[in-house]
Design a protein around this nucleic acid. Structure first.
Lengths: 140, 140
DNA sequence: ATTAGTGCAAAGGATTTGCATAAAG
DNA sequence: CTTTATGCAAATCCTTTGCACTAAT
């Protein structure tokens, strides 16, 4: 699915020159990472790439964000930026038990249509927090 | 409206010992500040209080947050935390022209009721971004 | 050759901490 | 006196930057 050649082509298609470092990181993002922080990415890189500097990880991610290959998420529960390969419009649920971040369909949120009389809205940022219900949890 | 004695009482009522520094900052927050950063608060303090350290500003704000006198907002458009004396549940609109942050009624956002089958939601964080319409802007 | 990318270490901004002094009950 | 708050500077965390080196066209 995500072999080096495919990843390389995807980078090129986005206008990003496919270096070994970028291929490695993008491959990791696409195939294994969920919502990784720079720290997560660096840890993976340290295990799976001969030698890559932290600056290159940051540079690479900036390049990916500019090329719209990934989205950068700055969420209030953490000081660390997380990266998301889901570049479609969507929202997030933060599971307070597991620390996991779950993608939500944008359709789960509806805005009062009266808002657009006052505002020209360009971005909608929604983060829900809470816990996931277990199978037989009681819920009204 | 917000004289020293009143502010002092409000602090006490929230279980916060009213020191001169705390009274000064809380007074500023209630009477003049909109959505100030620590930098804003420190700038005001430097003009209006004999001598207060930056650490005291941070300490004071932490105390206020713990006492639920203010809310701490970490928004993705800025690296700086902003403080909000509106402690009721509400959302925000960030005006990209002016940099202004505007409070929104929580009722402007509706969540798909199906969400609560899967999740037990404890917090809803919504930030809209865009611009404010001028009086005679055309809008569909 | 010229441009683009990388690595390293140093710098940066925002916040926190440790600890000694000062104030308050 | 004993606790709590303050001030200062140093430390911390995450991220960015400057610059020399390398690789690729």
């Amino acid at each position: 699915m995500y072999d080096t050649i495919t990843v390389s082509r995807q980078l090129k298609a986005a206008g990003v020159h496919p270096t070994a470092q970028r291929i490695a990181i993008y491959h990791y993002l696409l195939s294994q990472a969920k919502h990784p922080t720079v720290e997560d990415i660096k840890a993976w890189v340290d295990q799976n790439f001969p030698k890559m500097s932290l600056a290159t990880v940051y540079n690479t991610l900036r390049t990916f964000v500019e090329a719209k290959l990934v989205k950068e998420l700055k969420l209030p529960h953490s000081s660390k930026t997380v990266y998301d390969t889901n570049v479609r419009n969507h929202h997030h649920f933060f599971d307070e038990d597991s620390g996991e971040l779950i993608d939500l369909d944008p359709a789960v949120v509806t805005l009062d249509p009266a808002l657009k009389r006052k505002y020209l809205i360009t971005h909608i940022h929604v983060l829900l927090r809470g816990t996931q219900r277990r199978k037989y949890d009681d819920h009204a």
